[in-house]
């Protein structure tokens, strides 16, 4: 008979746990760390270390094409995340603050469809759809990208907002109504302030997702509408330079910043 261990079962006690954990961390982070390290490379090669230097950051910063792509990326992400968060907030309210109705599950699935449909399928569909509109209207501006980004950002904004709404004590809204607040004022003075961290988290997640998108952007963009990721993809096709590393690192820094904020906003308060 096995000796009864005083401690409850823990997965950390399994043989090989440490090895596998270390391997997983290596696989996840060594490539990223390499990328970050080489973005400070003084040499022109991406493979040979030539001493610490910020030259590639300076080069990227001074590159007007990079500047334009970065501004475009930020602009699209800002517009798309605001739009997606607005829609997501309304959708979350509609699916949590109404009496259960027929087709509620169907609506839930429909809202989260972008999470399930392969991105390439959406990309091709949007390409064909927008091409037709472009021909019909003659408009070829950034609105197509903003719309496309809004659409796939909605579920990312929706999920944290909905989670927060579901966790909210419904009696608070009842109490507001009891204290003479109309439906709108209940929303304005009770629901919205309590929901704010969820909305901010949703917006941040949407922003990051938009900033990071390659596939749909690549298909939908018109000529001269490169975002930072599609610009980098274009660069990589020709030559890999440490400049790309520098841009990637900057993008990584921004993403980490936003995701940290997201984490801080959504974690449970004690």
């Amino acid at each position: 008979m096995a000796k009864r261990s005083a401690r409850p079962f823990s997965v950390t006690d399994l043989p090989g746990f440490a090895t596998i954990a270390i391997m997983a961390f290596v696989a996840l982070y060594v490539p990223i760390l390499t990328l970050v390290a080489y973005s400070f490379n003084g040499a022109t090669s991406v493979a040979v270390w030539g001493g610490f230097s910020l030259q590639w950051y300076v080069a990227a910063w001074d590159n007007t094409v990079v500047q334009a792509a970065a501004m475009r990326s930020l602009g699209i992400a800002a517009c798309a995340s605001v739009l997606a968060t607005t829609v997501a907030t309304m959708a979350a309210l509609g699916t949590t603050r109404t009496a259960p109705f027929r087709g509620q599950t169907a609506i839930y699935v429909a809202i989260n469809q972008p999470l399930m449909v392969p991105e390439i399928v959406t990309a091709v569909a949007l390409l064909i759809f927008f091409a037709a509109i472009k021909v019909a209207t003659g408009y070829t501006g950034l609105a197509y990208l903003v719309m496309a980004h809004t659409a796939f950002c909605i579920p990312f904004a929706y999920l944290p907002i909905r989670a927060r709404l579901e966790g909210m004590d419904l009696s608070l809204e009842t109490a507001a109504a009891d204290l003479y607040a109309s439906r709108w004022r209940t929303f304005r003075y009770v629901t919205l302030p309590l929901l704010a961290p969820g909305i901010a988290a949703g917006a941040m997640l949407a922003f990051v997702i938009s900033l990071d998108d390659v596939v749909i952007t690549e298909f939908v963009k018109s000529a001269g509408q490169d975002t930072l990721p599609t610009y980098m993809l274009g660069q990589m096709r020709r030559a890999i330079t440490p400049e790309t590393n520098a841009i990637s690192t900057a993008l990584l820094a921004l993403t980490v910043l936003l995701l940290t904020a997201f984490f801080l906003l959504t974690r449970k308060r004690d």
């Binding site: 004590d169 608070l172 109490a175 009891d178 302030p193």
Partner: peptide
């Protein structure tokens, strides 16, 4: 008419 709720339902914000 006003209510004192069992859970108090005070506005935390």
């Amino acid at each position: 008419v006003n209510t004192v709720f069992q859970s108090y339902a005070l506005f935390p914000h």
